[in-house]
């Protein structure tokens, strides 16, 4: 892969843009179309592109499967934990109203945190799936 100069330069140029767009989709999901699922997939695309061009070994140096497994679990914990937080604040599960000073502010906080959890899990699971398929014939 080391000879594909054009591919490498173009992807180096594209990867930051893809990640930036993923963050836009993630955090703008509050006001327009977007959200954790889409952002997570877009984010993972950046890594998959990197893996395709630079190889699995160098990709696994940046983010190892173990870290991905922990991140995937972390996302679920964030999601379910938000629900537990609202339980502890005296409301029903996943009732965001109590998370902020006013119900509207609470809804904003709640959906942002939830979508963050979804985004983290989706992105890391997508990369993990790609890793494990790509690395299958290696071991």
């Amino acid at each position: 892969m080391s000879h594909n100069l054009i591919l490498r330069i173009i992807s180096k140029f594209l990867i930051p843009l893809i990640i930036l767009f993923a963050f836009y989709v993630q955090f703008h999901g509050d006001f327009g179309p977007g959200g954790g699922f889409q952002a997570g997939v877009i984010f993972s695309v950046a890594f998959i592109l990197y893996t395709l061009v630079f190889g699995l070994d160098s990709a696994e140096k940046i983010i190892t499967p173990v870290v991905l497994r922990i991140l995937a679990s972390l996302g679920v914990v964030i999601y379910a934990g938000t629900g537990v937080a609202s339980l502890l604040l005296g409301a029903n599960y996943l009732d965001y109203d109590v998370l902020g000073k006013t119900p509207v502010a609470g809804q904003h906080v709640g959906i942002l945190v939830i979508e963050l959890g979804v985004g983290i899990t989706v992105a890391s699971v997508m990369i993990l799936i790609f890793y494990s398929f790509a690395g299958r014939d290696r071991d």
């Binding site: 497994r69 679990s73 679920v76 914990v77 379910a80 537990v84 599960y93």
Partner: peptide, 11 residues
């Protein structure tokens, strides 16, 4: 929720 929340920890 309890088993759901426990699953990622156990993993």
């Amino acid at each position: 929720v309890i088993p759901l929340l426990a699953a990622p920890f156990v993993a």
